[in-house]
Structure formats: structure tokens, C-alpha cells
């Protein structure tokens, strides 16, 4: 029994050596394999949710994402919808958004880029106001707070 313990301990120690030796040459392939696992995606509360639809405008495109209410076990009462303007943006933006595509406008977003002033005019009870409005590498992003129906 003592000998078995010693031998298995030493075998495990050599396996640890192999683990470290293959770690760095295989880091890229291991990382790619890990990144393909189903849970390896950024939570929509950070990533902003999947794109729902887009409006192609004169020199830019407005991408409206799916509303995000994600909680741990179920949806939360409060969430947001993210709007991304991509391309060459005008200095002043004013868009009326129907994020749930029910035919009725939900809010109007007025954005003055130079002054970094963003105003949300809610047209629906589900819209709570502005959460985030920031310049991004691709244009501008706004997150508008929502209540769940």
C-alpha cells in the first residue's frame, strides 16, 4: 500500500510537469476550445444584447438591440434597450424608436454629440429614462432604461 501511494504520488507529480509543459505551447488552442463552450459569451447586461433590427440612414446605421432584462434565474423587472449608431454620425441625432416593433413609437432620442447631451422623451410607460450615453469606437451607444410589462 505504501509503495502504491509513493508510485501514484510520483506519477501525479510528473503529470503536473506535463500539464505545465503543454500549457504554453497549447495555450492558444486550449483558449479557442474553451471559448467555444456554450457559457463562454459575455452576459447581455454588459454586451448589450443581440441585434434586433437596424435602420439604415444616410451616412450611418442605427442598430436596435433586443431588450435586456436578464437576471440569474428569471428576467428582472428593470432592464434596458441598447441603440448603436455606426458610421459617420451627424452632430445632432434625433430618432424615434419603436424597440418592440408593435407599431407604436416608444421613445424619442435626441443626441447632441459635440455637447455630449442626450435627452430621452418617453412615449410609452415602459420607458424609464436614459441609462448610458457614450461615444464608442464605431460611433455612439445609448442605453435606455425599460420596465418589464
Amino acid at each position: 500500500m505504501k509503495k502504491i501511494k509513493i508510485i501514484s504520488g510520483i506519477i501525479w507529480a510528473f503529470m503536473a510537469l506535463i500539464i505545465i509543459l503543454i500549457l504554453f505551447p497549447g495555450l492558444n488552442s486550449f483558449s479557442v476550445a474553451l471559448s467555444k463552450l456554450p457559457f463562454m459569451k459575455i452576459n447581455p447586461n454588459f454586451a448589450g444584447g443581440d441585434a434586433a433590427f437596424s435602420y439604415v440612414q444616410e451616412r450611418c446605421t442605427l442598430v436596435v438591440r433586443k431588450p435586456v432584462f436578464d437576471g440569474l434565474l428569471s428576467e428582472r423587472k428593470h432592464g434596458f434597450v441598447q441603440l448603436d449608431w455606426r458610421g459617420e454620425l451627424p452632430d445632432v441625432i434625433s430618432d424615434t424608436i419603436d424597440f418592440d416593433r408593435d407599431g407604436g413609437s416608444d421613445f424619442v432620442v435626441n443626441l447632441k454629440r459635440n455637447d455630449a447631451v442626450t435627452v430621452i422623451n418617453p412615449l410609452s410607460d415602459l420607458v424609464t429614462g436614459l441609462n448610458v450615453s457614450v461615444p464608442t469606437s464605431y460611433g455612439w451607444t445609448v442605453r435606455v432604461g425599460l420596465k418589464r410589462e
Binding site: 471559448s35 457559457f39 463562454m40 459569451k41 459575455i42 452576459n43 454588459f46 454586451a47 436578464d70 440569474l72
Partner: peptide
């Protein structure tokens, strides 16, 4: 760990790869 198990996502604003 817990959010990955329940929401199948990572609660960090970084790059996956």
C-alpha cells in the same frame, strides 16, 4: 462560476478571446 452555470454567460465586460 454561479452566473456561468445559471445564465450560461460571463459577467465581465471583457473579451472572450
Amino acid at each position: 462560476i454561479i452566473p456561468a452555470a445559471f445564465t450560461k454567460s460571463i459577467i465581465f465586460p471583457g473579451s472572450i478571446i
